[in-house]
Design a protein around this nucleic acid. Structure first.
Length: 877
RNA sequence: GGGCUUAUAGCGCAGUUGGUUAGCGCGCUUCCUUGACAUGGAAGAGGUCACAGGUUCGAGUCCUGUUAGGCCCACCA
């Protein structure tokens, strides 16, 4: 064991350990009736993605749970995979092709999709390789992709089922349209962001006479106006109801209509109605039987209905229209107006509300059972507060636009008869029209929203719609770990899909962790350039360091603020574990399989203390994990291992094993050392899998710690009395060290110390532990005597249980020390004279702020205390 | 506009159902290369727990309000 280097170098171990695990199929889980299933549902990362800190946190949490449960003997399953990320992937491949001068349209649909598959074969594995470096113990043999055969089958099944139930429909509605990606988006894919805008007040004149002023933020849409609406209760406009206005620039006549939707207080109380470009106006137009006029095309440019503005970009058109209105004196005024505008979540282009023919899922009927599942407590959120967020969203849910005008994704299983216009929805391509028998059928061009496949993930990955053994055994899954960002996108929808298709919830617990931010609180993102790359951290500090550090600073559901220095915590701890193990292995020959419970008298007090602390820690760590209190579990382990085990226990037993021949070494101590070490390694393994495995391999050559049994607390060892006795002993040692430090007594100088017990029974506590005190405080002699009389030239300290006396005659030059202290005291006296003078100074007292005066008073107080203390010390010497 | 969340040492944060002397990491001061570890050890300094009220024998913790940050949701053009 002497060839173990004194520094843990992750690079020497991580790769080989991981491949060993993988080759031994230790990640693999099969249905096993003799075990309990434990399954996590993971958010499948985007196939174009690379590992960022959010992933690192998320996957570390999941791996902790999976490894912990596996050690507890569950059939612990983590199905990994990626989703096909329709829009993002298509954008990436399109960009690559453009560099070669190829356009998607030029290539054609079939060829383009082939190109995407090729790209996916080449690069789609990146994030999976990165998860392996993090140590994720996924069952890689089960790796799934939302576009693979089984999952595609599930998508078709889901679509057809919902369609047949009347829960999927097609219709013309205003949806979120990204003019850059040229596709529809769901509401969740178009998050609102505040932008600085302007509110333009425009005069719409009557044929004769003045007219009505309307306010708008998007003047270019006025080309598609079909009316002006006012509130029916608005007195200002009562007389004008039904009158006709001339739409500026266009020159056509439009009506003034009355509608309750209009807010009297906003703007002028009159609003232009543009049904093709605003969802509210669309609804209003329906109520008044007005035909929408679309003035913009899918590319965000004005179309033929925009007259001479045809072909202009929407923002360009806005400028020209505003200029023209100004020229015609129709622009009454312009106000600054900040408002929230939807942005494409993939390319951040401003969304255009756009009237088009799309497919939707009716959500209300799906939401009801999903609301019930959470209300009834069958599904629990951690932390609890997310329950309210979830319920609030679900209760106000709107229909889900699922069709996308892109090529990469699951094509809708919808076919149109070219002859009789019948709509056929079928999992397999129909041969002929069921209605008229025509063979001229055309499949819908659109693909489905990527989330339409990921919302099936918990069961589609287990084989659904087939009835598989996996489904039967592993469903419903146990827990979902995720970030709050995809609560609506994904978590809520999975609950709905589970209840709809399986009639059973997909998981019982949802743990929502915080968002990873940089040190200044900004969300980490590529565009901000504040990314800390997890791979770089793994290279520099090790995967264990990354894992430990990120968990240690993540308290339940709080956002995480990161900077590179924080990874030193984990690196240092891994090194500490390494070296403590190194010490144990270098000094212990025997391998204790287990410490059997012994008669108490055979164990030393130190042994009984560390066993008490160990079992208490086992209990607390297990409970913390059960409650998803990951950082608490870590800090319990950190404190136990570093402070109790290394700082105290190992130091206490050192004299028994160092410098002793093999025969005279205390066998018992060796057993306890290895027992505590092994159990600590097991407890630490879910958090720091590599370093714990590396050490485990040197203790037990063949076994893997991954499948070692999770320790169970043996209450028999937990002993309050022993723990408080050791606290008393530690207290004495600290007090003696304190005096040593104050008096500058070299460590090499051995002291003689006298203890006078102040409480009944205190004396025996110390006499039982005298050796520890002598060793750790570096004493020559320790006297315990109730009637101990303070010797001349000695210093003392008081604890609750003892008076501690340390004679210094012969240890240090007492006279010289006295002189040094007197000098120090004089210096302090000078200072206090100065301060007191200040406090008596009328000028100062009258003019200085109260806080400054108080600070001076406190300073004087402190100085006085210090002087008194020094005086006592000098006297004692 | 609605909802959530945060304020504890110079900095970053813990502090489960109220109950010993409010902890941890970094940083700082002093000392130490003693045979696991300087990515270490020993000792220490540093806190009116944002502010104002209230409940209680007792509040960092519970309630009300104030101030200042952060986040999410929302169709006032």
């Amino acid at each position: 064991m002497k060839d173990i280097p004194p520094r843990y170098n992750p690079k020497d171990h991580e790769e080989s350990i991981y491949s060993k695990w993988e080759n031994s199929r230790l990640f693999h889980a099969e249905p096993d009736p003799s075990k309990k299933p434990f399954t996590i549902t993971i958010p499948p990362p985007n196939v174009t993605g690379i590992l960022h800190m959010g992933h690192a946190l998320n996957n570390t949490l999941q791996d902790i749970l999976i490894r912990w449960k596996r050690m507890q003997g569950s059939a612990s399953l983590w199905v990994p995979g990626t989703d096909h990320a329709g829009i993002a992937t298509q954008n990436v491949v399109e960009r690559n092709l453009r560099e070669k001068g190829i356009t998607r349209q030029g290539l054609g649909r079939e060829k383009f999709v082939e190109e995407v598959w090729k790209w996916r074969e080449k690069y789609g594995n990146t994030i999976i390789m990165q998860l392996k470096r993090l140590g994720a113990s996924c069952d890689w043999e089960r790796t799934r992709f939302t576009m693979d055969k089984g999952l595609s089958e599930a998508v078709l099944e889901a679509f057809v089922q919902l369609y047949n139930k009347g829960l999927i429909y097609r219709g013309n509605y205003i949806i979120n349209w990204c003019p850059r990606c040229q596709t529809a988006l769901s509401d969740e894919e178009a998050p609102h962001q505040d932008v600085e805008g302007k509110l333009y007040y425009i005069l719409y004149s009557f044929k004769e006479g003045k007219g009505v002023v309307v306010a708008t933020t998007r003047p270019e849409t006025m080309l598609g106006d079909v009316a002006v609406a006012v509130n029916p209760k608005d007195r200002r406009y009562k007389k004008l109801m039904g009158k006709k206005l001339i739409l500026p620039i266009v020159g056509k006549e439009i009506n003034i209509i009355a509608d309750d939707f209009v807010d009297k207080k906003f703007g002028t109380g009159a609003v232009k109605v543009t049904p093709a470009h605003d969802p509210n106006d669309f609804e209003m137009a329906k109520r008044h039987n007005l035909e929408p006029i679309t003035v913009m095309g899918p590319d965000g440019r004005m179309n033929e209905n925009a007259g001479r503005f045809n072909g202009l970009d929407r923002f360009e058109a806005r400028k020209l229209i505003v200029a023209e209105l100004e020229e015609k004196k129709l622009l009454i005024k312009t106000e600054k107006h900040d408002h929230a505008v939807g942005h494409c979540y993939r390319c951040h282009t401003v969304i255009e509300p756009y009237l088009s023919l799309q497919w939707f899922v009716r959500m209300k009927p799906l939401a009801e059972p999903a609301i019930e599942a959470v209300r009834s407590g069958k599904i629990k959120f951690h932390p609890k507060r997310w329950t309210k967020v979830y319920l609030n969203w679900m209760e106000n849910i709107k229909d889900w636009c699922i069709s996308r005008q892109i090529w990469w994704g699951h094509r809708l299983p919808v076919y149109y008869c070219q002859k009789c216009n019948a709509v056929i929805v079928s999992k397999v391509t129909p041969e002929k029209c069921q209605k008229c028998g025509s063979v001229e059928l055309k499949q819908d061009e659109d693909v489905l929203d990527t989330w339409f496949s990921s919302w099936l993930w918990p069961f589609s990955t287990l084989g659904w719609p087939e009835k598989t053994k996996d489904m039967e055994y592993f469903y419903p899954t146990s827990v979902l770990v995720t970030a709050p960002e995809i609560l609506f996108f994904w978590v809520a929808r999975m609950i709905m899909s589970g209840k709809e298709f399986i009639k059973e919830i997909p998981f019982s617990d949802v743990y929502i962790h915080g968002t990873v931010r940089d040190a200044t609180g900004k969300k980490m993102s590529k565009s901000l350039g504040n990314i800390i790359d997890p791979l770089e951290i793994i290279d520099g500090f090790g995967a264990d360091a990354l894992r430990f550090s990120i968990i240690s600073i993540t308290s339940a559901g709080q956002d995480v603020f990161l900077s590179k220095e924080k990874f030193e915590i984990g690196r240092n701890f891994a090194n500490k574990i390494w070296n403590a193990s190194r010490f144990v292995l270098m000094n212990i020959e025997q391998r204790a399989e287990r410490v059997e419970h012994r008669a108490e008298e055979k164990l030393s007090i130190a042994d009984r203390w560390i066993l008490s602390r160990l079992n208490r820690t086992i209990e607390a760590v297990t409970r913390a994990l059960k409650n998803y209190r990951f950082n608490e579990a870590e800090s319990l382990l950190y404190d136990f291992f570093w402070h109790d085990f290394c700082d105290w226990y190992v130091e206490m037993v050192k004299p028994q094993i160092i410098g002793q021949s093999a025969e005279s070494k205390e066998q018992r101590t060796g057993e306890i050392l290895i027992h505590v070490l092994e159990n600590s390694l097991k407890l630490l393994h879910p958090f720091m899998p590599f370093v714990t495995e590396a050490i485990w391999q040197s203790i037990r050559e063949r076994d893997s710690i991954m499948i070692a049994a999770w320790p169970e607390a043996d209450k028999h060892y937990i002993n309050k009395k022993i723990e408080s006795d050791i606290e008393i002993v530690k207290n004495i040692i600290v007090n003696i060290r304190n005096i040593r430090s104050d008096m500058n007594i070299a460590y090499s100088k051995k002291l003689t110390v006298g203890l006078a017990p102040l409480k009944q029974g205190a004396g025996s506590v110390v006499s039982n532990n005298a050796e520890y005190i002598k060793n750790l405080a570096h004493l020559e002699k320790l006297t315990i005597d109730e009637n101990f009389i303070r010797p001349k030239s000695s210093l003392s300290a008081v604890t609750e249980e003892f008076n501690i006396f340390i004679p210094l005659e012969g240890v240090i030059d007492v006279e010289a020390e006295k002189a040094r202290l007197v000098k120090k005291q004089d210096l302090l006296k000078q200072q206090i004279v100065f301060t007191e003078k200040k406090l008596k100074d009328k000028n100062f007292m009258d003019h200085a702020p109260e806080s400054v005066v108080r600070a001076e008073q406190e300073k004087a107080e402190k100085l006085r205390e210090q002087i008194d203390r020094l005086g006592k010390t000098i006297e004692d010497l």
